[in-house]
């Protein structure tokens, strides 16, 4: 999983209205991985995807897909890519089957009803194959968009907010589908607002803000590096203040005065927990319960964006 499939070098995009959507972005995407791109609205995620797919023209910089340039060798690069757009943009008066077959044709593939059937069955759309698209629910339309993106067997799949407006059950079904696709060798790049989505399925995470990539890292490493754990210590009796001898631990006293919270870095060799518990006992405070809580990707994301905006 070390081979770079997509390499983005110094990519910038300024729209005609002067909006600088991307600023000197460089990023390598590895073959077979699931990369989640996180970022607030207007961060540049969709612009980045649109440039790689050929929908938006870059102002400067280069993008290679499997060794091919997206401008000069657009036929090679685009034929490898499937795109699920953010909006439910579909030809509403066409049937599901024809719509998916149409996309397959666009990508230069001969008609293959058997393959389209298998894609529709995998996405639980087979019984809707003859339905006109406008008769489908939003969730179903979202699946049709995925079926269209898979209709030509792409080796790279871009999912731009794939589960926006989709109920929890269907969202989890989609995660399973994405995982199955990755297992079949498809490289997946997704943008999402649901941090739990990135946390659940991504291998790596790229955080974009104001058109720049702030951080790219393995999800686990990011959680390890930036993740802080919290130890909540519930007490048997109220304490009005934190004893002086415990001030070195930077504890927080809860509103009901019945618990202390200690934040610590999971990466440090010594977390200080043993000494803290010893000192609490020495102060005569009786422990009722201990709970630990780990930082989520969401908290890391919020912290990163906030820091970036302040700088």
């Amino acid at each position: 999983m070390s081979e770079d499939l997509i390499s983005i070098n110094n990519l910038s995009k300024t729209y005609k209205n002067g909006l600088k959507a991307l600023n000197n972005v460089s990023l390598n995407i590895k073959k077979g991985e699931i990369l989640a791109m996180l970022g607030p609205n207007g961060a540049g995620k969709t612009t980045l995807i649109s440039i790689i797919c050929g929908i938006v023209t870059p102002s400067s910089g280069k993008v290679n897909v499997d060794g091919f340039d997206i401008i000069n060798d657009y036929r090679q690069t685009r034929s490898k890519i499937g795109l699920v757009p953010q909006e439910l943009t579909l030809e509403n008066f066409e049937t599901v089957f024809n719509n998916v077959s149409f996309t397959r044709g666009l990508y230069g593939k001969a008609p293959d009803p058997k393959y389209i059937e298998s894609v529709l069955k995998k996405l639980s759309l087979w019984d809707k194959k003859d339905n006109i698209l406008r008769q489908l629910s939003g969730g179903m339309k979202r699946r049709v968009l995925i079926a269209k993106a898979l209709s030509h067997k792409p080796s790279i799949l871009f999912l731009d907010e794939p589960t926006a407006g989709v109920d929890v059950e269907l969202r989890k079904d989609m995660w399973k589908s994405v995982e199955a696709l990755r297992e079949s060798g498809v490289t997946i790049i997704l943008t999402t607002h649901y941090i739990e989505e990135a946390e659940a399925i991504a291998d790596r995470v790229a955080v974009i803000n104001n058109g720049e990539i702030i951080v790219v890292d393995q999800k686990k490493d990011l959680l390890n590096k930036m993740g802080r754990k919290k130890l909540r210590i519930d007490l048997h009796e109220k304490t009005d203040t934190i004893p002086e001898s415990l001030s070195k631990y930077d504890l927080e006293l809860s509103g009901n005065k019945l618990s202390l919270t200690y934040s610590y870095d999971t990466q440090k060799q010594r977390t200080g927990i043993t000494n803290l518990l010893q000192d609490i006992r020495d102060q005569g405070l009786k422990l009722k319960d201990l709970k630990t809580e780990e930082s989520t990707l969401e908290k890391i994301f919020v912290t990163l964006v906030k820091e970036n905006n302040e700088n």
Partner: peptide, 17 residues
Amino acid sequence: FPKFNGSLYEILAAPIS
């Protein structure tokens, strides 16, 4: 029509000249 409803994206993203 595809420009209006947004479905033109797939033609622009397809390997077609």
